[in-house]
Write a protein that binds this DNA or RNA. Structure first.
Length: 587
RNA sequence: GGAGCCGUAGUGUAGCGGUUAACAUGUCGGCCUGUCACGCCGAAGAUCGCGGGUUCGAUUCCCGUCGGCUCCGCCA
C-alpha cells in the first residue's frame, strides 16, 4: 500500500475516491457491529469507519488495534450521514470507509494520553519525549520554530546575507559564562571550549570580506538553568560591515516584522520605541522593561531628603534613592498582602517596603507621622495619588531601589491583571554602559562583551571615568523579554587594546588570548557590527509559552540532565585514559 | 551555593496518627451498527519517591536524602 493523502487533506472534494492514509490510532470506538477509529498523522485527524458488511477482514483486524498502533488504511471517502457531522474536526464532514487495514506496527499503551488537554508531569514528558512530541501542541511548536527559521533565512538571503558555519570546537576565552570544555586526545592536557557564541568568528568573517553573515548557531554556556535558559541554545547570529547602529536597528525591525507577518500573520509596527538604558532603569527598574502596562517608578528622593523619617533621610545621605510605585486601587490590601510584597522585594535585596494607604482625608501608614503635611502632599502629587491607592516605597542604593521595584512592578501587574497577553510590545534599549564595576574582583567587566565599541562621543572618558562610557550596544525587548542584543564593534587594534587594558587584561594575556584578533585588525578591518537573537525565546513568545523547553525538541532539566537518554553519564576508564584525564571526584 | 513548592494505582487528583487507601480516567474482559470525552456490565491495578526518627501504631508528624519545577546568586 502506498500513502496517497495525509489525514487532514481529505474533505468533501475527495468523496468517492479510493485513498490510502497512514498514521497513529488516536482513538478506537468499538460499537460491536461497527468500529470507529480516529486516525492521526502530522496533519490532523480523520475518522475511519470499519463495517463488517463492507469489509469483514478489515473489521476483524480493527477489533485488535489499540491506541498508538501505526496503521495503513485503504478506503473510500464518503460523506457522513445526515446529522453526523463533527464540527470540531476539520475533516468532520467525511468518513473514510475502510476496505483494507494493515497494522504497520503495534504499540504498548503509552504512559500518558497523546492529547493536548492532558496535564502530565513534565518529568514524564521528558522521559518519553518522543511521545510528548506526538501531541499536536508540541508538533505545532516545532512547526512554528521551523517556519520562523525559514522566514529568517528567506529574509536574510534576500538582503544579501551569507549563511556561514563556524567551529564548535574552539578556544576558551576569559570573561563571560563558564565554558563547556572538550579534551583533546591528540593534544594531551589541552582543551577545546564549546562556543558561548560565534562572536569572534563572525568578526573575523567581516575581516575576511564576507560583508554580511548570519548563522543559526548553537551556543553553550555552563551556567545554572532557568525557564528561559538551557545549557545549549540557539542564536540567530548576524554581522554586517560598513553600517552604523541605526541601519542595523531598522533592518532588524524589518526582519522581525517580516517573521511575524509570515509565520503568525501579525502586523508589527515599526519603528520600535527606543529607551536609553538610564531611562529604562529609572522609569521601569529594568534593562528589559515590559511596556505593556504603566506602574512607572516615581523618584521622591528630593521630596523626602529632609524628612524626619530616618530610614529615608539616611539613605539619601548615603547616596541612595527613595522611589516608589503607585499600586492603583490597592488601598484595600491587607497587612498580609503588604507583607507578601515586602518579602517579594527582599528577594531582590530591598531591606524593606514602606507604604502609604491613600484615603479621603490623607494617608494611613505606620510612617506617616514622620512627614509634615507639605511633604505628604508633595509625595501624593508626585504619584498622582487618589483615594484608594497604595503607594509602595523602597529606600536603597540606586541599583537595589530600581531593580527591586522593577520586579515589584511586574508582580503588581500580574496581580492586577494589567497585562494584555495578545499585545506585542517591542522596544530597543540603547546606550548601555560599556563597563560595569565589580566590587568583588575590584575591576571593570564588559557589560556586553569586550569587543563592543564605545560611543565615540565618550572616548575621552576612557582615561578619566571609564564607568561613564556609553557603549554602542542595543537590546531588542519583546514584552519584557530580551530577545536579542548586539553592538557596533571595535575594529581598530589600539582601541581594542585599550579595552582589554580597562578590563585588567595585561598585554601579554591579551596577546595570548586574543592575539590573532588583534593581528587581524591590522589587515584592513572594515567597520562592522551585529546582533544575536535568542531563537528559543523568540519562538517561545510566538508560541505563547512560558518556558523555552516547550519549543526545544529535546531539552534538559534544571539540573542539566537529559531524562530520556540519561545524559550526562559516566564513561569508561579507557576513554578517560585516552584523553589523559584522571578523575579527581569524591568517593 | 541558597530559598520556596511538589512527589499516593499507568495518568491526574483526594485523603488521614489506626481506612478494605478513595475518585476520575486509562488498561483488560463481556455486550452494543453512527460514535467522536460513545454507552452499559464486570475485573485487575498502590513498596503512598527513598532512608531514618517520634509513636503501641506513620502514607499522614519530624529530620535527612533523591528527583522535578520556580526563583536568588550565576548567565561578557
Amino acid at each position: 500500500m502506498k500513502r496517497t493523502h495525509s489525514c487532514n487533506d481529505l474533505n468533501e472534494n475527495n468523496v468517492g475516491q479510493e485513498v490510502v492514509v497512514m498514521g497513529w490510532v488516536q482513538k478506537r470506538r468499538d460499537h460491536g457491529g461497527l468500529i470507529f477509529v480516529d486516525l492521526r498523522d502530522r496533519s490532523g485527524i480523520v475518522q475511519v469507519v470499519f463495517n463488517p458488511e463492507q469489509a469483514k477482514e478489515a473489521f476483524n483486524l480493527a477489533e485488535k488495534i489499540r491506541n498508538e498502533y501505526v496503521i495503513a488504511v485503504k478506503g473510500e471517502v464518503v460523506l457522513r450521514p445526515e446529522g453526523m457531522i463533527n464540527p470540531n474536526l476539520a475533516t468532520g464532514h467525511i468518513d473514510l470507509a475502510a476496505k483494507e487495514l494493515v497494522v504497520l506496527n503495534k504499540s504498548k499503551t503509552p504512559p500518558f494520553y497523546i492529547s493536548d488537554d492532558v496535564d502530565v508531569d513534565e518529568m514524564l514528558r521528558l522521559k518519553y519525549r518522543y511521545l510528548d512530541l506526538r501531541r499536536p501542541v508540541m508538533q505545532k511548536n516545532i512547526i512554528l520554530r521551523h517556519k520562523t527559521i525559514k522566514a529568517i533565512r528567506d529574509f536574510l538571503d534576500q538582503h544579501g546575507f551569507l549563511e556561514i558555519e563556524t567551529p564548535i570546537l574552539t578556544k576558551s576565552t576569559p570573561e563571560g559564562a563558564r565554558d563547556y570544555l572538550v579534551p583533546s586526545r591528540v593534544n594531551p592536557g589541552k582543551f577545546y571550549a564549546l562556543p558561548q557564541s560565534p562572536q569572534i568568528f563572525k568578526q573575523l568573517l567581516m575581516v575576511a570580506g564576507m560583508e554580511r553573515y548570519f548563522q543559526i548557531a548553537r551556543c553553550f554556556r555552563d551556567e545554572d538553568l532557568r525557564a528561559d535558559r538551557q545549557p545549549e541554545f540557539t542564536q540567530l547570529d548576524i554581522e554586517m560591515s560598513f553600517i552604523d547602529r541605526d541601519y542595523i536597528l531598522s533592518l532588524m525591525e524589518e526582519m522581525i516584522a517580516f517573521i511575524f507577518k509570515k509565520v503568525l500573520d501579525k502586523d508589527v509596527q515599526t519603528p520600535f520605541k527606543r529607551l536609553t538604558y538610564d531611562e529604562a532603569m529609572n522609569r521601569y527598574g529594568s534593562d528589559k522593561p515590559d511596556l505593556r502596562f504603566g506602574l512607572e517608578l516615581i523618584d521622591i528622593t528630593e521630596e523626602v531628603r529632609d524628612s524626619q523619617f530616618k530610614v529615608f533621610a539616611e539613605t539619601v545621605q548615603k547616596g541612595g534613592l527613595i522611589k516608589g510605585i503607585n499600586a492603583k486601587g490597592c488601598g484595600s490590601y491587607s497587612r498580609k498582602d503588604i507583607d507578601d510584597l515586602t518579602k517579594y522585594v527582599s528577594l531582590y535585596g530591598a531591606k524593606g517596603l514602606a507604604y502609604f494607604i491613600v484615603n479621603e482625608d490623607g494617608v494611613k501608614s505606620p510612617i506617616a507621622k514622620f512627614f509634615n503635611p507639605e511633604e505628604i502632599s508633595r509625595i501624593l502629587e508626585k504619584f498622582q495619588a487618589q483615594p484608594g491607592d497604595l503607594l509602595l516605597f523602597v529606600a536603597d542604593q540606586p541599583n537595589v531601589a530600581n531593580e527591586s521595584l522593577g520586579h515589584l512592578r511586574l508582580e503588581l501587574a500580574k496581580r492586577l491583571n494589567l497585562i494584555n497577553p495578545d499585545e506585542l510590545n517591542f522596544l530597543w534599549v540603547v546606550d548601555f554602559p560599556l563597563l560595569e564595576w565589580d566590587e568583588e574582583e575590584k575591576r571593570y567587566f564588559a557589560k556586553h562583551h569586550p569587543f563592543t565599541s564605545p560611543n565615540l562621543d565618550d572616548l575621552q572618558l576612557m582615561d578619566k571615568d571609564p564607568g561613564k562610557i556609553r557603549a554602542q550596544a542595543y537590546d531588542m525587548i519583546l514584552n519584557g523579554v530580551e530577545i536579542g542584543g548586539g553592538s557596533i564593534r571595535i575594529f581598530q587594534r589600539d582601541v581594542q587594546e585599550k579595552m582589554f587594558d580597562l578590563l585588567g587584561l595585561s598585554s601579554e594575556e591579551a596577546k595570548e588570548k586574543f592575539g590573532y584578533l588583534l593581528e587581524a585588525f591590522e589587515y584592513g578591518t572594515p567597520p562592522h557590527g551585529g546582533i544575536a537573537f535568542g531563537i528559543d525565546r523568540l519562538v517561545m513568545l510566538m508560541a505563547g509559552k512560558e518556558t523555552i523547553r516547550d519549543v526545544i525538541p529535546f531539552p534538559k532539566t534544571q539540573s542539566a540532565v537529559d531524562l530520556m537518554m540519561d545524559a550526562p553519564s559516566e564513561v569508561s576508564l579507557k576513554q578517560l585514559k585516552e584523553l589523559y584525564i584522571k578523575p579527581v571526584v569524591q568517593q
